[in-house]
Design a protein around this nucleic acid. Structure first.
Lengths: 161, 161
DNA sequence: CTTTCATTGTTGACGGATCAACCGAGCTTA
DNA sequence: TAAGCTCGGTTGATCCGTCAACAATGAAAG
């Protein structure tokens, strides 16, 4: 008789609730919102900007194209991230002596400071997420992600069998 | 010595690769792109529009607010989806006799036709995703999603301990 | 040397998601 | 009935991610 409760049953029974891509979408938007909340409080960076900072912090001198290649971030998005980070004084670009197309990225002192201040909170969050899972879930989830990514990248077979 | 290969090692070793939210982001964008590809070929709907069609097909007469409540879709996004679907003749709205705020949604004949044409391809895709996983992975992944969603919704503890 | 092609990074355009302000309708309480 | 509240839905602003076009540079092939 309760409307809200009935909606809950509905949620569990609707076929959509077992759709992987729907569940991934929901999880993604929640994780995203949580990370954005933390970053806003801590350093004011967007999630994409934070990822660039984190990568450059562990691989000093890396180039945007390498970041784009292994992290599958969009070139354009990356370019804008770098621009914003340089403008706010967290990052500097250094030209390559041998190839004028290439930029090498490094954090400034301010960039390192912000990275070191922010990383613990992000690791803490990561730990909370992982500790919330059982051992099996923690083991399995990454391999499942790998497999799903491969399938999602594969061509969609046009025939229905 | 090979640049591409070295990038691959880099990908696996960087800490970011084990970050859950990063992996969910990547998986999400791939699943999204795949679904958008299929929908574009099949019926020209956006993913959000397709979800609304799928829900209304199984729950005729459902209202936007109910959809929003259980699927956690944004009210505004839903309103625009419904408008687009009505404009293209796939859906009709029916007023509630007792409460003039409420709209009940139903598919038109054309809407049902498109739903029945599209659903098999989407289910096929879903099957391919699930069959790519091992039994354990398939069992575990949904419970892991549930737990992660709860943690992501929880307040972020401000203290670093 | 010159032509052609691949790579690096920048930019503009577009669609999608999110947030907040808002309106109209119903309910509640005095 | 009037005041204040909640609820359903619409709209606009803004941000983010994606895609395509482009300029500049370098490498390869003739």
């Amino acid at each position: 008789m309760d409307g809200k409760l009935k909606d809950q049953y509905l949620q569990d029974q609707l076929p959509i609730h077992r759709f992987i891509s729907y569940r991934v979408l929901r999880l993604h938007s929640k994780l995203n919102a949580q990370a954005a909340r933390i970053l806003k409080e801590t350093c004011g960076l967007s999630l994409a900007q934070w990822r660039v900072v984190a990568v450059v912090a562990t691989e000093d001198g890396i180039t945007p194209s390498k970041i784009s290649r292994f992290s599958q971030m969009d070139k354009g998005q990356l370019s804008r991230c770098v621009k914003a980070l340089v403008d706010s004084g967290l990052m500097v670009t250094r030209d390559d002596p041998a190839d004028q197309r290439i930029q090498h990225l490094s954090l400034t002192a301010k960039g390192h400071e912000i990275h070191e201040r922010t990383l613990p909170r992000m690791l803490n969050r990561q730990d909370r997420l992982l500790l919330g899972l059982s051992d099996v879930e923690r083991e399995v989830i990454f391999s499942a992600f790998d497999k799903l990514e491969v399938i999602a990248d594969a061509a969609d077979d046009p025939a229905d069998e």
